[in-house]
Nucleic acid binder design. Structure first.
Lengths: 134, 134
DNA sequence: CGGGATCCGATTAGATACTG
DNA sequence: CAGTATCTAATCGGATCCCG
C-alpha cells in the first residue's frame, strides 16, 4: 500500500491511529507523557510521579511510547543501572496538548463534581453509571 | 469535607479527576465527545459516527458523560422514540480540546507510523510491545 | 428507535517474586 | 536500579434477547 493511501481518521474503525491514541490518551500514557514534559526522568522517578502505576504498566507504556517514537530510552551502563526516558520532538508536541487537556479538565472539575452530586441524588443511588474505577 | 479542600490533581492516586479523565479521554468518550461537537445527535447516529462502538459501550459512555454534566440527554416522547444528545457548555470546552488532540495526533501519524516500522524491524518481530488492539 | 439485562469469553491490570 | 515472569482478579466489551 502506497504511503499516500494511508488514512489516519480516528473515527474509522481499524484506523492505525486508534491504538496510538489509546496509548497516548490512556490512563498511564497520558500521565507518563505529561510527567516527562519537564525533562529526563528515570524509571523509578516516573513511578513516583505517576502515582499508582505498577512497574508492569509503566514498563509497557514506556515501551509502547518508545515504539511510537514519542519517547526515547537511554541506557547508561553503570552500577547501579541508570535508564533515562525523555520526550522526542513529536512527543513534546503531543505532551503539550495532553497537558492542556489535563489543565482544562482540572479547571472544570468543580462543576463536574457538582453535576455528579446532583445526578447521584436525583437518581436511585444504586444505579449510578459506573466510570472506570481503577 | 469543605469545598476548598478538594484537590483535583490527576497525578495523585485516588484523585476524583482520574475517573473523569478516563471517561473523557478513553476510547469511546473521546470519539463520542468529538462527534457531538457539530450539534445534536441521536443514539444510532452516534453509533454510526463512532465506528465500532457497541450499543452497550455507547450507552455506558453517554450515561457517564451525562453524569459528569458534559452531555445532555433529551427524550422526545414519540413513536418511534427520539432521544437526542448534545454537549453542555463545559462539554463543548472539553470536546474542543479533545478535537485539537485528535487533529494533532493525526498530523503526527506519518512520523509515528515510520517510527513503529523502524522499531519493529530493528527488534525481534516477536517481542514488539503490544498496544491496545481492540 | 433507544435502549436495559444478562451471559460469557478475552483482556487488562495489579501483586508478587525473581534477575542482571 | 530497572526491569521481566507469572499468577490471578477484575473488567471490558460483544452478542443476544427483550421491552416500551
Amino acid at each position: 500500500m502506497s504511503y499516500e493511501e494511508l488514512v489516519f481518521d480516528v473515527f474509522a474503525r481499524n484506523c492505525t491511529s486508534r491504538p496510538v491514541m489509546e496509548t497516548v490518551a490512556g490512563r498511564w500514557g497520558l500521565l507518563t507523557m505529561a510527567a516527562l514534559r519537564d525533562g529526563t526522568h528515570r524509571f523509578n522517578e516516573l513511578r513516583r510521579r505517576v502515582d499508582g502505576v505498577s512497574e508492569k504498566m509503566l514498563s509497557q507504556t514506556l515501551h509502547a511510547l518508545e515504539r511510537d517514537g514519542l519517547v526515547v530510552r537511554e541506557v547508561r551502563s553503570a552500577i547501579p543501572p541508570r535508564v533515562e526516558y525523555s520526550l522526542t520532538d513529536p512527543g513534546r508536541r503531543i505532551a503539550a496538548k495532553l497537558t492542556e487537556l489535563i489543565e482544562l479538565l482540572e479547571a472544570e472539575m468543580p462543576g463536574i463534581t457538582l453535576a455528579q452530586a446532583r445526578y447521584d441524588t436525583a437518581k436511585d443511588p444504586a444505579d449510578v453509571p459506573q466510570q472506570p474505577q481503577r
